[in-house]
């Protein structure tokens, strides 16, 4: 019996021989794919670090600790610290509404949520210029009251919010859809209140997916370039985020410094992907455990049948 449980299905199955291409075709295809991915993805990453350290570690450190660099890092962190929690709030509440209830127009709501994916980041910046710019609709009003949105922190936050807005919701909706609502309904029928149900029943099941949603949203918030570029005004030390700082240095031919700042963002991206891999690994392990339990059940059934 034990051999049945452990023997098959331990590793994901390889393609059986009769469905496989000849070895030389396989090698050729793998080679092509690896070459392509290397040229398009790997080499650029390597280039960032190579360029960043071209003039030595001292220059690298120096460029990261310059006054403007530190200001850019601070601003980037501040923007993310405002934008990410707001989008998490939206993501969780949209996912709750969409997956726990049926209502008319759900498809439309989902499409609208995805809208920022389809909009050019430049347009995401443009819309806020049209609204709040000096010649925008609310421009005169804002000038009168001495409020600054565009070319200041609020504008940067708004455009960042716009661009990163779907990420948490997109990550949570499929997850919560798959989990159904039986457990929540059971908890409610036992008298638990809404918040309690969410924190005790729903959250434990989605925490890893939520974590990845947050990390991805954060990476995009810190790395957004196009939209922020439109509304920031590029005021050095005041409205330059890290990506804008990279751009300015690059355009001033300070390549080592530009790539040094860029390397921070690459690290951020790599951490994001590592978290993603970890979350996926957890999910896979969870699914495998479930499948194994099911197999055990089937075996018991067969044993009982005999």
């Amino acid at each position: 019996m034990a051999s049945i449980a452990l023997g098959p299905a331990a590793e994901s199955r390889e393609t059986p021989a009769h469905l496989n291409e000849p070895a030389w075709v396989r090698v050729l295809l793998i080679g092509l794919a690896v070459l392509f991915l290397t040229l398009i993805l790997l080499v650029p990453l390597a280039a960032v670090f190579a360029e960043a350290f071209k003039k030595g570690a001292a220059v690298y450190l120096q460029s990261l600790t310059s006054k403007d660099a530190l200001a850019a890092i601070r601003l980037t962190l501040a923007v993310a610290a405002i934008a990410v929690p707001l989008n998490v709030l939206f993501g969780v509440s949209a996912a709750w509404a969409v997956t726990k209830f049926r209502f008319r127009g759900k498809q439309l709501f989902l499409t609208l949520t995805d809208l920022p994916f389809a909009v050019s980041p430049v347009i995401a910046g443009l819309v806020f210029i049209l609204l709040f710019g000096s010649r925008g609709w609310l421009g005169p009003f804002l000038a009168e009251h001495d409020l600054k949105i565009v070319f200041a922190l609020p504008g940067i936050v708004l455009s960042t919010l716009f661009v990163t807005f779907p990420f948490v919701a997109r990550e949570l909706i499929p997850l919560m859809e798959a989990q159904g609502k039986d457990e929540e309904e059971a908890a409610v029928s036992l008298g638990a209140g809404g918040w309690r149900v969410f924190f005790r029943v729903t959250l434990p099941g989605i925490k890893w997916g939520l974590l990845y949603g947050i990390i991805l949203c954060n990476a995009r918030a810190m790395g957004e370039f196009g939209a922020v570029s439109v509304v920031s005004g590029h005021i050095r030390g005041r409205t330059n985020t890290l990506p804008l700082h990279v751009e300015i240095l690059y355009n001033e031919y300070q390549f080592a410094a530009a790539f040094a700042a860029a390397s921070l963002l690459v690290l951020l991206a790599l951490v994001t992907l590592a978290v993603k891999s970890f979350v996926e690994w957890r999910h896979r392990r969870h699914a495998d455990a479930l499948a194994a339990r099911e197999r055990q059940g089937a075996l018991r059934e067969e044993a009982a049948w005999r």
Binding site: V34, A47, V246, A262, L268, L273
Partner: peptide, 24 residues
């Protein structure tokens, strides 16, 4: 490893991709 890398363009700020590709 390669499978994990596929998402780099999602996670990497576009400006960084831009200057890296240009330099290459």
């Amino acid at each position: 490893f390669l499978d994990g890398l596929i998402d780099i363009p999602f996670a990497l700020p576009t400006a960084v991709a831009g200057i890296a590709l240009t330099t290459l």
